[in-house]
Structure formats: C-alpha cells, structure tokens
Design a binder for these strands. Structure first.
Lengths: 206, 206
DNA sequence: TTGATTATTGAACGATCGTTCTGTATCGAT
DNA sequence: ATCGATACAGAACGATCGTTCAATAATCAA
C-alpha cells in the first residue's frame, strides 16, 4: 500500500476522454436505469473522478442528458437509418427498422432492449425532467417514423384507408414491446418473428 | 405543537388494514418504480409507520412482493378475464384482452401503463430479485395467453400455418408496447386503434 | 380490575446518496 | 527555470436511504 497522503492529487495527466467515459456511462444507465445508477457506480465504471464528471456535466442529470445524446448518436442513428434511406420503399424502410430493432435489442455485447424505452420507465418526481427528456426523444422518433409513412402514403405506397399516424404508432408500439421482450430474454429469432408478424398483411396499395 | 415526548408511542388502536395500505403502495410503486419509491414515501402515503410495515412485510422487497400480488389480484385478474372465459372464441378472447389493456392502461384514476411492465424496468444489481419477480409474472402471463391460443388452434380457430407461440408473443409484445405508449400519454382511442391494427393481422382459419 | 401481550409510534442507526472542497501534480507561457 | 492555471485525486459534506429500537398505550384473558 502506498502512503495515502503521498497519492493525493494526481495532477493533470490529460483531460479524460469524454466520449469514452460516456460510452461506459451509457452501458450503466442502460442496464440499471437512472435512479439505480449511482455516481459512485459511474466513477468506478468510467475511471473518472467524481469532481471531473461534475466539472464536465454539472450533475447527475447533466451526465444523463449527455448519455442520452451519446446513445442517440451511436445506437439510435443506426437503428433509424432505413427510415432516412431514400432508396428504400416505405415497406422496406419499416421492415429494415424492425429488423434492426430485433438485432440491436438482443445484441450480446450491450444491455438488452432499448435504452430510450427502459432507462427511465418509472422515476421519482424529483427527477421528472429525466423522464421528460427520454419521452421527448421517444415521441420525436415516433414522429419521424410517422412522417416517413406520410411520405409513403403521398406516393401511393399505402392502402388508401390506412392512417399513417395510426400505422406509425402501431409500428412504434411493436418496437417498444420488442424492447420489453428483449429485456425478458427473447432471442433475436423470436424478435424477428414478432417483427415479421407485425409486417404481415402490410396495408400496401393494391 | 404538542409535546414531542408526550406523543411518543400511540399504543394499539387497531391492526392497520393491510389491503388498504397495499393499495396505496401499489399506486406509488406503479408510478415511480421500485428504486425511486422510498420507505419514507410509503410511510407518508399509507399512513402506516415504518416499523409496522417492516413487521408485516419484513423489508422493502417483501412489501414490493406483496404489492405485486395485490396488483395481480385486482388489476391483472380483470385484464386477463377474457382469456379465461370459455364462452369466448379465441379471437374474441384476444380482442377482449387488448381492449381491456387499452382502457386499463389509460384509466385516469391510476398511473398510466401496466405496473408489471414499468415498475422495475431497470434496476440495480442489489435488487435483481425484484426484477426477477416481475419478469416471472410477465412470462407466466404470456404463457397463459399462448396456452389459450394453443387451445384455439386445437379447435381449428387459427390458420394452419400459424404458430400459437409466435402469435402469443406478438400479442403480448403489442400489449407491452401499449403500456409504454400509455406512459407517454397515448389516449384510450389511440390505444384502441393500435389494438385494432394488431388484430387486423389475425390469422383466422380460412 | 389487573397484568401480560403486542401493534404502534417517533427517534435513531449505519450506510450510501449526490455533491463540494481541499490539496497536488502537471501543463503552457514567460 | 519559474510561475500561475488547470484537471485531477481523495476526503468530507449534509441529506436521505432502508432498517431497527426503546417507549407507549390499546387490547384481551383472568
């Protein structure tokens, strides 16, 4: 054991890698949720001292906000790629989205399910702002999907009696449910079966 | 202000009403989740002193376990009634289940969504047992649904190429997603539309 | 009426929560 | 070579966490 007094104050080796620390924080919040993840956990996992985390992110809520953005930039962006791909038909886009959800939610290297859906499912009134951040992201993602469906409808890709808003909400609901299923141990094949069943009898224009 | 010393020890007015206290605890856990609900919150909400709660339920986890059973006995039982109703066709049973989910998850007097799905979505490793309790309940409920579908299939109520296990998982997934939707503010009508769209894909025989 | 029982209470426990502070080692500029 | 400036480390903060305790009064058997 080195002398405690001598080891205090490690100086300025280098600014800690913010993204690397956020990646570790993402995993922790993803798995345990906001309330169950303590700053001590985050310090231990990231290897960054508490004071440095506070200097960079103000407080736990600020760190969580940064974690949300980091997750969105790395995982969500990949998930929603098919929706923004102009080369795909509307059906292919939604099919691609659900298939990516199936594989992403059951990916072995990451916590099961979707961070956006489970990290703050239920939260204390004191951290209501946390819940709001994620809800806004979820609603924005749904709006993105619905917008894509509207474009598809405008191009005659959907049955005339299909409401894009309802269809989008339905697809989104299936995806949210798939996250819960993944958390409960559903395999990628089971998730793909669910996705396939959701896409069955797609209301295509004849 | 009454003298503090004189007010200590209030004697034995009556054993507190366990079910009434559990009902209040259900609401609290339902809304905030396991980790974000403190014993102090529970004491304030139920009006029962901490020591009395500990005498009755051992600890917070024990109280939560009792809350799960209470929720199952009051809300879940009602939700799954159609599944156990022998007078209903398989389709009617599933339709009834989803419609009850739509109204129950958006019921104004109770927290949005389903307790079983959101109360312990993400939890610390120390309370992994809590997560397990709910997961077991969810899986049991899904098994119940799948069993009902198997009976329907045996009676020729499903298309021959339909796997009851997959169909059950799909229905269950939609229901879980509906809970997230409800948490995010979906109205009963929106939830009913989602349910209807899920049933549109019903693989009836011929 | 009395005495043992017991559910109840407010207070107190150690542990941990999120957060801040003090001190130090390293850096860039002079 | 030397001097602030800065990013880091551990220690310490008050508050709150889940839990337990000693004290008290309502109960029921005698």
């Amino acid at each position: 054991m080195t002398d405690t007094k001598a080891r205090r104050g490690a100086g300025r080796p280098r600014e800690f890698n913010t993204d690397a620390a956020l990646d570790k924080a993402v995993r922790l919040f993803w798995q345990r949720g906001y309330e169950a993840t303590s700053m001590a956990d985050l310090v231990a996992e990231t290897g960054v001292a508490a004071a440095s985390l506070y200097a960079a992110f103000d407080n736990k809520a600020g760190l969580f906000a940064a974690v949300i953005e980091r997750y969105a930039a790395t995982f969500s962006v990949h998930l929603y790629e098919p929706i923004n791909d102009p080369a795909l038909s509307t059906f292919e886009a939604v099919k691609g989205l659900l298939e990516r959800a199936a594989s992403s939610f059951s990916e072995p290297g990451t916590p099961a399910g979707c961070f956006m859906y489970s990290a703050a499912a239920a939260v204390s009134p004191a951290s209501a702002a946390i819940e709001c951040m994620l809800r806004d992201k979820r609603i924005a993602a749904e709006a993105l999907l619905i917008e894509r469906l509207h474009r598809g409808a405008a191009q005659g890709e959907l049955a005339a009696d299909t409401d894009p808003a309802v269809l989008g909400k339905f697809i989104n609901t299936v995806m949210e449910g798939m996250s819960v299923q993944a958390r409960d141990g559903a395999t990628i094949n089971e998730l793909l079966s669910i996705a396939e069943m959701a896409l069955d009898r797609w209301p295509a224009a004849v």
